[in-house]
């Protein structure tokens, strides 16, 4: 076979030209995006805009996981669905939109809710995971599966007029390696009382609030995927030299609050917890405990009413 003369196809230079010309992406970054496989768990208020911008950016493989069907009450914020596709499975509905935006992406549909039994096997097919779900049960499960499979996790949530975003297991390292980023259990070792957990159905949600958080998830995913070994020179800290520290990486929580001043706030959180049940050397959570179904996330989170796992 002849060696390919150009690393991208001609139409790709055109389609992705506006990001290709930036040093933060470049040809190198575009090829990383093209080779990347990203899983979006939950194709709702967060997952719809996140999927749109990741498909737009030319991520090679985009996995969509959701067992729900589109409802009319979703449409004020779930902008990849449509009125004609009410009652259709959300992954199917979103894929119709995404195909028309960018047909050159390889879309995988996982038309069911995530379960501990399936998580490991599915996550292993991807390089990075977005948690776009809406319940603590799924947030702990997704974080545990990301630790066990070594994937960075971009996690966001929103309710009413507020949103939160955090990048976890970044960089991804095996349990016990202090140079990995913290996981969801490092930040929240115990689940909140079930009666304190409000869903968007119960509490309400302003469309652009969850929209902003979903778009920012896509951006953080693109940053992780296109990052070189060294950060670009125009990076964030006040330091005057480019020394990289080998200190345990901390997570940063971005908080958004529509009616607050300022609207956005970034807070430095902790590094990995030495006694974390998932990512420490003393970890008690294993592939075996997930795949066998012996870990009961619903009981752990104390759900009082039966809920769909996702």
């Amino acid at each position: 076979a002849q060696p390919r003369r150009w690393p991208l196809e001609k139409h790709e230079y055109k389609r992705y030209g506006r990001q290709l010309i930036m040093p933060e992406v470049g040809l190198h970054g575009q090829l990383r995006l093209k080779n990347a496989r990203v899983l979006i768990v939950g194709v709702g208020g967060l997952g719809c805009p996140a999927a749109a911008y990741l498909a737009g950016a030319g991520v090679g493989t985009l996995g969509l996981m959701d067992g729900d069907t589109v409802e009319e009450s979703n449409l004020h914020r779930q902008i990849a669905h449509s009125t004609a596709r009410v009652d259709m499975n959300k992954t199917q509905s979103a894929m119709e939109y995404l195909q028309s935006l960018n047909p050159h992406v390889n879309y995988n549909r996982h038309e069911f809710h995530l379960t501990p039994q399936k998580a490991i096997q599915i996550f292993e097919q991807y390089d990075l995971v977005l948690d776009c779900t809406d319940h603590p049960t799924s947030r702990y499960l997704i974080s545990d599966a990301c630790i066990l499979t070594g994937k960075t996790l971009v996690s966001a949530s929103a309710l009413k007029t507020e949103g939160q975003l955090i990048v976890l297991n970044n960089p991804p390292r095996p349990p016990g390696d202090a140079l990995g980023g913290p996981c969801y259990r490092c930040i929240f070792p115990k689940p909140p009382p079930a009666e304190s957990v409000l869903s968007c159905g119960e509490g309400g949600i302003l469309g652009p609030v969850v929209g902003v958080m979903g778009v920012l998830q896509a951006l953080e995913a693109i940053k992780v995927l296109t990052a070189r070994a060294q950060r670009p020179a125009n990076g964030g800290d006040w330091s005057t030299n480019g020394a990289t520290s080998e200190a345990a990486p901390k997570a940063t929580l971005l908080m958004f609050s529509t009616y607050n001043t300022p609207q956005f706030r970034s807070v430095r959180l902790r590094s990995r917890r030495a006694d974390c049940a998932a990512c420490s050397a003393q970890s008690t959570i294993s592939r075996q405990s997930l795949t066998s179904g012996s870990l009961d996330y619903v009981a752990f989170c104390g759900a009082t009413a039966p809920i769909n796992l996702l």
Partner: peptide
């Protein structure tokens, strides 16, 4: 004091 959100 920040309560974690879970909606999406």
């Amino acid at each position: 004091f920040v309560s974690t959100l879970h909606g999406g």
